[in-house]
Simulated assay, not measured.
Amino acid sequence: MVPQLNLREKAQTVGVVLAPQDIMTTSRWSKEQLKLAFHLYCQLPFGRLHSRNPEIIQLAKLIGRTPGAVAMKLVNFASLDPAITSTGRAGLGNAGSLDKEVWAEFHAGWEKLALECSQLNVQLRKEKGAEAVVELDVTEQEGLQDFTGETKRVVTEQRIKQHFFRRAVLSSYRGRCCISGLSDARLLMASHIVPWSNDKENRLNPSNGLCLSPIHDKAFDRGLITISGDYEVMLSEQLKQNDDAFVAQIFLPLEGRRIELPERFIPSIAFLSRHRNEIFIDAAGQ
């Protein structure tokens, strides 16, 4: 018989440090708090779901929870993630019905909820007297001062959505290009499998993303390469017949190579099939 672990023992197996108040607390999580927690879960590597993480500490302050309680909740979400559990890792296994509801709601409407969580974050900061900042990196903030009014709002919202998608994809792939292994974040792209313009409902779905270097992103976007249902790289005939020395060195050895799969949000087989049928040059007959 497999021994049953108590809450503290389960937490320790996944690196969550619990204080007594984390175990004894009886206050229920609101749906808004859970949305913010899941929003953060999507953007952090699995190995950083612990109470010492500055982003977890910051969220805990905003929602009036302890960092340990927030870390526990993130690991609860991990117990719902098939990409995590299929590898033998597990969350705490204490996800409740509202946790599952938030999980399902996000998967049914990534774009709406990513923006809603950003707005909730700003609202909570204002209520607590903190600076209500839009969480974008420096490059994403550049140029916003050049816009005003409705145009600025639209541009800001677009960048918020792109920021969420990039963080979710890069963290899932542990900050490494899934084809080349490149690990410099400045040189990585969160690439859409089904293009942004072709599927509004899945624009921000991390399972519609691949972490790629710029050159592999461009080749994938132009249909020169694709990914099979077995997650292996496929090269177009145009690319294989190209006599450029750089192409021969960089691309030809990739044929049949299996990509490095992410920790979470494994690329959707359906999205990969659409890319092969709609974008890949050989299938499209271009």
Rank of each mutant, 00 (worst) to 15 (best):
N205T: 13
N205W: 06
P206W: 01
S207D: 10
S207V: 10
S207Q: 13
S207W: 03
S207G: 09
N208D: 10
N208M: 03
G209C: 13
G209A: 13
G209D: 03
G209L: 08
L210M: 08
L210T: 03
L210H: 02
L210V: 06
C211N: 05
C211Q: 03
C211H: 01
C211V: 11
C211L: 04
L212P: 07
L212R: 02
S213W: 00
P214T: 14
P214W: 03
P214G: 06
I215N: 12
I215K: 00
H216I: 15
H216Y: 14
H216C: 13
H216P: 04
H216M: 15
D217C: 12
D217H: 15
D217S: 12
D217N: 14
K218M: 09
K218N: 11
K218E: 10
K218S: 13
K218R: 14
F220E: 00
F220M: 01
F220D: 01
F220Y: 05
D221C: 04
D221E: 13
G223D: 04
G223L: 07
G223A: 10
G223H: 02
L224H: 01
L224F: 13
L224A: 04
I225A: 05
I225N: 00
I225C: 04
I225S: 05
I225V: 15
I225E: 03
T226C: 15
T226M: 05
T226S: 15
T226V: 10
I227R: 00
I227N: 04
S228N: 09
S228V: 06
S228F: 09
G229A: 08
G229I: 05
G229Y: 05
G229T: 09
D230R: 09
D230H: 07
Y231N: 04
Y231E: 09
Y231G: 10
Y231K: 04
E232D: 07
E232A: 10
V233S: 01
V233C: 07
V233R: 00
V233A: 02
M234W: 14
M234S: 12
M234I: 15
M234G: 07
L235G: 12
L235M: 11
L235S: 10
S236L: 08
S236P: 12
E237P: 10
E237A: 14
E237N: 14
L239A: 08
L239N: 06
L239F: 04
K240M: 15
